[in-house]
């Protein structure tokens, strides 16, 4: 992807954020937003934004929808599970820190994967190093790399792979 494309995507992200923040589509606030976004893009050309590295294909858009649905389901599930653990008198936890491997290549895809893992059942990303993630798991099910990868990563990876690669 070219430099100009990355900058353009960052600019679009910033403008969308500005419009949401203002909640209006008035011309004068739009012009101020364009000015501010241009200045930011000039100084942070290579920074990541949600759209950078996103693949604009129909499959990617479909995957985004199913990713959001899957994510919300997992978020609710993780909260209910944690609520049950917290409310039980003997606090049934068996924590451990495991290492998993991701197939995702893009930086944004890996970032979203790490964030999603943190918000889903009993898992917390501690460190992201290239393709390896270290994850704290409240209710450890599998200590080896393959088992943990299958249990934690694959659900999200399926969607993110189509979206970001």
């Amino acid at each position: 992807m070219s430099k100009a494309q990355i900058s353009a995507k960052l600019f679009i992200t910033l403008i969308l954020f500005w419009m949401l923040l203002n909640g209006t589509f008035a011309l004068d606030s739009f012009i101020v937003g364009v000015g501010a976004s241009l200045i930011i893009v000039y100084f942070f050309r290579d920074s990541l934004s949600f759209l950078s590295e996103f693949r604009f294909t129909p499959q990617a858009l479909m995957a985004t929808l199913s990713y959001v649905a899957f994510f919300l389901k997992e978020l609710v599930k993780s909260n209910l599970r944690l609520a049950r653990i917290v409310l039980e008198p003997d606090l049934p936890i068996n924590p451990g820190i495991v290492k998993v491997r991701t197939k995702l290549k893009s930086r944004m895809g890996r970032l979203l994967l790490a964030n999603s893992i943190t918000l889903t059942p009993g898992t917390l990303t501690i460190e992201l190093e290239d393709e390896w993630l270290y994850i704290h798991w409240v209710t450890l099910e599998s200590a080896d790399i393959e088992g943990a990868t299958q249990a934690i990563v694959e659900g999200f990876e399926r969607h993110l792979e189509v979206m970001y690669g």
Partner: peptide, 21 residues
Amino acid sequence: GLNRMPDIFNRIQAGTKTTTL
């Protein structure tokens, strides 16, 4: 959860997820 969990990692788990939802 933040008060019941035994160590910092489990506390962070309890603190992040439930407050986000």
